[in-house]
Computed example of a mutant assay.
Amino acid sequence: MYALSSSLVRSSALRQGLQMAAVNRQVSLKVVSVGSTIKDETFFEKNQRLGREMSPHLTIYKPQLTSLLSVMHRGTGLVLGLGVWGLGIGALVASQDISHYVTMVEGLQLSGASLTAIKFILAYPFGYHAANGVRHLLWDTGRFLKIKEVYSTGYVMVATSFVLTAILALL
Results as ranks from 00 to 15, higher is better:
Lys62Val: 06
Glu41Tyr: 04
Phe162Lys: 06
Arg15Ser: 14
Tyr124Asn: 00
Phe44Gln: 13
Tyr151Gln: 07
Ala166Lys: 09
His136Trp: 05
Met1Trp: 09
Ser114Ile: 15
Glu45His: 01
Ser7Pro: 01
Ser161Pro: 03
Ala113Met: 11
Phe44Met: 06
His73Glu: 04
Leu171Ile: 11
Gly133Thr: 05
Leu138His: 03
Arg143Gly: 04
Ala130Val: 14
Met157Val: 07
Phe144Thr: 00
Gly86Lys: 08
Arg25Cys: 10
Leu69Trp: 02
Thr103Val: 06
Lys119Glu: 13
Ser95Arg: 14
Tyr61Asp: 08
Gly107Ala: 14
His129Asp: 10
Ala117Lys: 09
Arg25Phe: 15
Ile98Arg: 02
Gly88His: 04
Ile89Trp: 12
Ile118His: 04
Tyr61Ser: 05
Ala94Lys: 04
Gly77Lys: 12
Val158Arg: 00
Glu53Ser: 07
Leu50Ala: 12
Ala131Asn: 02
Gly75Leu: 14
Phe43Gln: 03
Glu53Asn: 11
Thr37Gly: 03
Thr153Gln: 07
Ser12Ile: 09
Leu170Asn: 12
Leu138Val: 13
Glu149Pro: 07
Lys46Ile: 12
Gly127Met: 02
Leu122Ile: 15
Leu68Thr: 06
Lys46Phe: 04
Pro125Phe: 01
Gly17His: 13
Ala3Cys: 05
Phe162Cys: 08
Ala166Tyr: 10
Lys30Asn: 10
Ser11Tyr: 01
Arg74Ala: 10
Phe126Ala: 11
Met72Leu: 12
Val163Asn: 02
Tyr155Asp: 00
Leu87Thr: 13
His129Gly: 05
His100Ala: 13
Leu8Ser: 07
Gly107Cys: 05
His73Trp: 05
Met104Asp: 14
Lys146Asn: 15
Val23Leu: 08
Asn47His: 11
Gly75Tyr: 09
Ser95Met: 08
Glu45Arg: 01
Val102Arg: 05
Ala123Ile: 01
Asn132Ala: 14
Ser28Ala: 09
Asp140Cys: 13
Leu68Tyr: 07
Gly133His: 07
Ile60His: 08
Ala22Phe: 12
Thr141Gln: 12
Tyr124Gly: 07
Ala117Glu: 00
Leu82Ala: 10
Leu138Cys: 13
Leu14Met: 11
Val163Ala: 11
Met54Cys: 05
Ser55Cys: 08
Val32Gly: 02
Gln64Met: 12
Val158Asn: 05
Arg74Pro: 00
Leu80Pro: 08
Glu106Met: 14
Ala169Ser: 13
Glu53Pro: 01
Lys30Cys: 03
Gly83Glu: 15
Gly90Met: 00
Ser152Pro: 02
Leu69Tyr: 01
Tyr128Val: 08
Tyr151Gly: 01
Gln16Gly: 03
Val27Arg: 03
Thr165Val: 05
Tyr155Lys: 03
Ser33Tyr: 07
